[in-house]
């Protein structure tokens, strides 16, 4: 499994080199969004309205952080379960979204949509929010402030660790890695 240190938003099609099982360290800016923000973004698109953020070549991190303590950039910030975003994901991939960071299985429809749109799905370690927060260097509220922890934030990350689960070639790391250890 390869290791990559890459910049986000993705440049020069670098996301196409990523394969299931690769370890990736992301540096740059990404957006946070979870259930309520996804619902609202897709509703806006359906009404023909513009999104508050440009998703081209971007990555979305599925996270609802805890409030920042005084002097801190952000509170704990680990990934939430991605499958709750499945219903909305194909539509956002059509808007140019290239990367998603979360945890857990994706639906067949999302996996196919990842392949069609040359995108990639990463998993970060669920339940390691205190550790992952240390990789976040700044956080700025961008849209949907009324959603509280579910608002869209632009965060700056440095060597944010994650693993490629689904790549654009149809690779699926959960399936492949678990098969190696299955004894029953």
């Amino acid at each position: 499994m390869a290791q990559h240190y890459i910049r986000v938003p993705f440049e020069d099609g670098v996301e196409l080199e990523l394969r299931a099982g690769d370890q990736v360290f992301l540096t740059g800016t990404i957006f946070t969004a979870r259930d309520a923000a996804h619902k609202r973004m897709v509703e806006q698109l359906e009404k023909g309205e513009a999104l508050p953020i440009d998703l081209t070549n971007q990555a979305i991190y599925y996270v609802g952080p805890t409030p920042a303590k005084p002097g801190a950039v952000i509170g704990s910030a680990g990934p939430t379960t991605s499958s709750r975003m499945d219903k909305y994901t194909p539509r956002l991939l059509q808007e140019g979204l290239k990367g998603m960071i979360g945890k857990g299985y994706r639906s067949k429809k999302v996996i196919d949509s990842i392949a069609e749109n040359n995108a990639v799905y990463f998993a970060a370690i669920g339940g390691s929010g205190a550790l992952l927060a240390q990789k976040i260097k700044s956080s700025e509220l961008i849209a949907y402030e009324d959603l509280g922890t579910e608002a869209i934030r632009k965060i700056e990350v440095e060597n944010f660790p994650c693993i490629v689960v689904n790549d654009h070639k149809g690779g699926d790391w959960y399936k492949e890695s678990q098969a190696n250890f299955k004894q029953s």
Partner: peptide, 24 residues
């Protein structure tokens, strides 16, 4: 490696008085 990171995470949470997971 993941298990070791979970131990690190727990230690950071205790030392800095921050939640170990964002889902409290």
């Amino acid at each position: 490696s993941i298990l070791n990171q979970l131990i690190d995470n727990a230690n950071i949470a205790t030392a800095n008085r921050v939640p170990m997971c964002q889902d409290t």
